[in-house]
Design a protein around this nucleic acid. Sequence first.
RNA 1: GGCGCCCUGGCGGAGUGGCUACGCAGCGGCCUGCAAAGCCGUUUACACCGGUUCGAUUCCGGUGGGCGCCUCCA
Length: 459
Amino acid sequence: MREVRIRDTLSGAVQTLDPDHEVGIYACGPTVYSRIHIGNARPFVVFSLFARFLRSEGYKARLVVNVTDINDKIYTAAAQAGEGSAKFAEEMTAAYVEDTDRLGIGRPDVEPKATETVEGIIELIAQLIEKGNAYESGGDVYFRVRSFPDYGKLSNRRPEDMDQGEEAGSASLKEERLDFALWKSTKEGEDTSWGSPWGPGRPAWHIECSVMAEQELGASFAVHGGGSDLVFPHHENEIAQSESAGRPFAHVWMHNGMVDAAGEKMSKSEGNIFQLKEALDRYGREAVVAYLISGHYRQPLAFGELPMEEAVARVERLRNFFRTQAGRDPGGPSREQQPGGSREGPPGSRIEAFRDALADDFNTPRAMAEVFELVGEANRDEVPGAAEAVAEMLDLVGLGSIAEGQDDEHPEAERLMQERQEARAAKDFARADEIRDRLAEMGFEVRDSADGPRLVPRS
RNA sequence: GGCGCCCUGGCGGAGUGGCUACGCAGCGGCCUGCAAAGCCGUUUACACCGGUUCGAUUCCGGUGGGCGCCUCCA
């Protein structure tokens, strides 16, 4: 079991995870008011793979990714679509599950929904009112920011600095403009509503995460994650809510950087979104995952045609590696190598370095460099166990499927390839090339090698 | 205005106080009937100016540029 270090947004320092306790990870999922885009997919991939890595190291990990299915934007989007908001949210949740399923990296352990957490939310709000950290006002409930002295500690800002400018709304029910809503009374045109001590209404934005995190992971858990755009106000407010109620919150805060398009953050309000579904259709799941792990999770990641084509090319290089390895090493002499066996030779030491990189603030690009180092070594000279080692590493980052042979049987193509071999033997190259063109039309590329020709499906 | 992050070879993107990251693309070569795949090579890479140091791309200070958050947002 490796020591795993993560850079913590709250302390600004690198923190080591406690190997003796379950590593509870709560990562903020999407608000389901439209199909998710690649930017939304980044935290899903990062935290899923992080949990997978921890387990492979022998940690007990539990990953919770919520779905926020109560929100102003859902009402708006549902109305535009001419649907009931409950039905609309259900459809968008299903689309989210469908899209993320296609990434092929499994599902989080738990995926709680705000709509199923309302009871616990009301309880927490009541508790905050009782302790003087929140107040009811005209059917709404607000958090009294000044009652929490630590407010601003996560995003490193002082309430005084924020308390500038004019109050936007004229008829605010808040005591102070910094206060934020915990509960909103039902407004005209809103078609879902829950009963509460403050009248019919619904939870506001941040409170659901405080409750869901604690319900699934306990009062004090290891890692809270999400996009860096959530640091303020969302995560700051979660801390305020939970800690004011005397409930210790997350130990480490782990934030992923934004995916941006043409130098600008990709966001629904910017209108520069690229849907995950579209990316999967166009480039394939491996390329999408390979793209998302191509930069360090904390850094911004540029999206575009070029980076995606590069991801496709990387995946293709890996695929070619397995194809030649399969031809070279049919019996698999190193198949008997047990995990944890020899780590001295090239394959073993690469795996060690790969895992070291992931343990060091989940450095996926450094880890992938080890994969490509080994691929290069094994392409140059025979390295026993290389294919297995590369497969093992790729599996850890959700790319294990690349190692699985996908060359389908195709009798007609096989026959043509044989015919071409005969033509080549007879030095009838015109005929051979003609057959190659026909195979190309059928979607196959022919690669000649010392071991004979091979059919490769064109990607 | 406040807080934070970033500026690496043609492009993407790691990293380090002195040692080839890696990937993609181009060019040249090897292999091949041709091609593909693969392999080899590819000419001072670390924004600028100071400082610390035997030595800085790596630490400190400043200048310039970019980005994120401060309002819904992964």
